[in-house]
Design a protein around this nucleic acid. Structure first.
Lengths: 205, 205
DNA sequence: GAAAATACTGAACAAAGGTGCAGGTGTTTT
DNA sequence: AAAACACCTGCACCTTTGTTCAGTATTTTC
């Protein structure tokens, strides 16, 4: 990649920061205002140079048409944004907007591929035996079924809870890993479903 | 936050995905084209509803003027890349290239500010009492000193280990949180140092 | 059963924002 | 010395894009 002049580097940096913080590119006139360039054409010359040198791309005749090549955002290629669910509002789908507490960005290497993921803030100490503490964020791979013994995010009566899954002939046992809690037994037909299985844990100390 | 109608949710999802993949918001006409809405006003009604319900914001009279609240769209500027240390090669600084196993990208919200960070792959079950299992990645904030009881990454004889820090007058006790391990006692002058204190834990199941 | 909200069509208009042309002044390269 | 480049002014023009007005039909809410 060709060297930039000081002026070009400053303008390029402004564009990059602008897109990162605003989520949309600046207009030619906005760039001009920032650098005291009175004519739109002054900016266009700079953009032309940046495009020739491969730092930006332009969609012609499009408002806010500056694009950066993907490699400028290394993270976006290898990171995933996943919604963190606090509690689940009764009767809503898990990923409904009102359940989303915040969004977390993590490395895709941390996640299983080709699957839908969300994160659940853990409340309570029922799973301390598996190293899952209250306040941890559990990463959940969405799936409707689970195998015996796996840790599942189960929805019971509209509340989400992490437990070991132990199905038997006509009922399902959900076991905590902290011995002070008794297993929960769910009969078929009760308001119960599996939201997904545990794929990871994140804790901020 | 108010419930969305199916139509509104679909349009909202399109806007979100569009911004995520393009780094700029769609125009009213682009949304209309996607949903076969022939009049710009059909889209505007939907956007008006989304704005009233708090899902989007609009910059009036601005091209591509749809914005999402921050929590929906974490900026990729807010991610950090941190080196993951497996074992520590004898006599090398922790962050020496040969110690770095891989690099992890995580949300800066997960990290303490204004401090140097690295990550350590945990070996062994000595800290299970604190929910730290073998294979977990411990996030360490680099600092030379620690307070009594904190979990520190300690370097003893060139090996890194996580333990509770319990200094006394002329020796330092490093305690595991798994009762099957005895405390390690280090006298002053031994080859011992604190690499940092525990700031987080990440586990891939 | 009326009022409000949802979900559009269609047309016209206005502001925002990109493009093109005609220059100008230095500095660097050939 | 000529050519090329970096960096700029000023203005006109035109496309893109947001806004407004008028109207229709259906569903939801009170």
């Amino acid at each position: 990649m060709k060297e930039l002049t000081d002026r070009q580097r400053a303008i390029y940096g402004y564009i990059k920061d602008f897109i990162l913080s605003h989520k949309y590119p600046p207009t030619i006139r906005e760039i001009g205002a920032r650098f005291n360039i009175k004519s739109t054409n002054g900016v266009r010359d700079a953009l032309k140079a940046l495009e020739i040198k491969g730092y930006i791309k332009k969609r012609t005749n499009r408002a806010r048409g500056i694009e950066l090549p993907k490699k400028v955002f290394p993270s976006s290629a290898h990171t995933a944004h996943l919604p963190v669910i606090g509690s689940i509002a009764a009767g809503t789908p898990i990923l409904a907007q009102e359940n989303i507490e915040e969004t977390l960005t993590i490395d895709q290497a941390m996640l299983p591929r080709n699957s839908e993921i969300f994160a659940l803030r853990v409340q309570g100490d029922s799973m301390t035996g598996d190293g899952i503490l209250s306040g941890d964020i559990a990463i959940i791979r969405m799936q409707k079924n689970a195998e015996r013994g796996q840790i599942v995010a189960a929805i019971i009566d509209g509340d989400a809870t992490l437990k070991h899954y132990h199905p038997s002939e006509n009922k399902i046992e959900l076991r905590a890993s902290n011995p002070k809690y008794f297993p929960i037994t769910v009969s078929e037909g009760e308001d119960f479903s599996i939201a997904g299985i545990l794929a990871g844990v994140i804790r901020k100390c």
